[in-house]
C-alpha cells in the first residue's frame, strides 16, 4: 500500500480515536440523569396535542363542520384534558423551582460553614482579611481562616 495513504490513514485513525475518547476524557456527569424518565414531558405533549385539537375544532366549527352541541361538549372535554396537563406541568415546574432553591440554600450553607466567604454579604475573602472588601463588616478573630 502506498506510504502516503498509510500516513493519511494513520492521521484519520488518530482523529477517530481522539473524537471517540473525548467524552471519557472530559469527566462529566451532566448527562447521567438526562436518559432517565422526565416528569412532565408527557404533560407537555398533552398540552400541545390539546392546543392542536382546539385549533382544529374551532376552525371546523367556524366552517360549520361540527354541530353546536358536539362542539360545546368536545371543546369542554379538550379544555379539561389540557388544563389537567397544564396543572401537571405547573407541579413539575414548582418541583424544579423547589429543587433549585434547595440547591442554592445548600451552597450558601456550605459557603458559610467553610468560612471562605463573608458571613454578611457572601463576598469571597482572603485568609488574613480583617474586613469585608464589599460590605466592610469586621471579621472576628474566630472567623480567621486556618489552613
Amino acid at each position: 500500500m502506498d506510504l502516503g495513504a498509510v500516513l493519511v490513514g494513520l492521521a484519520m485513525l488518530v482523529v477517530t480515536v481522539v473524537v471517540l475518547a473525548d467524552p471519557f476524557v472530559k469527566s462529566s456527569d451532566g448527562g447521567q440523569r438526562a436518559y432517565q424518565s422526565k416528569r412532565g414531558l408527557s404533560a407537555r405533549m398533552k398540552k400541545r396535542t390539546g392546543l392542536w385539537a382546539l385549533r382544529d375544532l374551532d376552525f371546523d366549527h367556524e366552517l360549520g363542520k361540527v354541530s353546536e352541541q358536539d362542539y360545546k361538549v368536545t371543546r369542554a372535554q379538550i379544555l379539561q384534558e389540557t388544563a389537567a396537563a397544564l396543572e401537571e406541568i405547573e407541579k413539575d415546574e414548582a418541583a424544579v423551582e423547589a429543587n433549585i432553591e434547595e440547591e442554592v440554600r445548600n451552597l450558601r450553607r456550605t459557603a458559610r460553614e467553610s468560612g471562605r466567604y463573608c458571613h454578611q454579604c457572601g463576598q469571597a475573602r482572603e485568609q488574613d482579611d480583617r474586613f469585608c472588601t464589599a460590605c466592610g463588616v469586621e471579621f472576628k478573630m474566630a472567623e480567621t481562616l486556618s489552613e
Binding site: 484519520m12 482523529v15 477517530t16 473524537v19 471517540l20 475518547a21 473525548d22 467524552p23 471519557f24 462529566s28 456527569d29 451532566g30 448527562g31 447521567q32 438526562a34 436518559y35 432517565q36
Partner: peptide, 27 residues
C-alpha cells in the same frame, strides 16, 4: 449500551461516532 445503562459518556461517544462515520464515508 449507553442508553441501556444510563452512561452519558458512552452515548456521547456513540454520537461522535455517528458524525465521524459520515465524515469518513464522505472521504
Amino acid at each position: 449500551r449507553g442508553g441501556d445503562e444510563g452512561r452519558h459518556q458512552l452515548v456521547v461517544s456513540g454520537r461522535n461516532g455517528a458524525l465521524l462515520t459520515f465524515a469518513l464515508l464522505t472521504v
